[in-house]
């Protein structure tokens, strides 16, 4: 940072790189949150050498249903708002 300067093309390349890495990091952070949440909801037995019946499908469904919930809530609130406005 002191007296070293990247040329314009390299600066551009680095900023594209950073944006991409940040987007990936955001996805990764969401995966951490989802894993924690779905683990609490789905894994109820004492951990064995494999998941108990139902735990695996619960984990797989958990992600999609959470995102569906989020979409549903947004839709419901938007519906209520447009009712109020009309």
């Amino acid at each position: 940072m002191d007296n070293f300067k990247f040329d314009e093309a390299t600066q551009k390349e680095l900023s594209t790189f950073l944006e991409r890495e940040q987007a990936q990091a955001r996805i990764n952070a969401t995966v951490h949150t989802l894993t924690s949440m779905c683990w609490d909801k789905c894994v109820t037995s004492t951990p064995g050498s494999r998941f108990a019946r139902g735990e695996e499908s619960c984990l797989l469904n958990c992600v999609d249903r959470f995102l569906d919930t989020s979409l549903f809530i947004i839709k419901t609130i938007e519906g209520q708002r447009s009712q109020l406005q009309s």
């Binding site: 996805i27 990764n28 969401t30 995966v31 951490h32 989802l34 894993t35 779905c38 683990w39 894994v43 004492t46 951990p47 064995g48 050498s49 998941f51 695996e56 984990l59 797989l60 958990c62 992600v63 999609d64 995102l67």
Partner: peptide, 24 residues
């Protein structure tokens, strides 16, 4: 229990990562 739990948590993390990226 702890070592199995660790394995299962990693497995869950990978599963959820795959499902989430597929959804995206």
């Amino acid at each position: 229990c702890l070592s199995r739990c660790l394995e299962r948590y990693m497995e869950a993390f990978n599963m959820i990562s795959k499902t989430y990226t597929a959804r995206l």
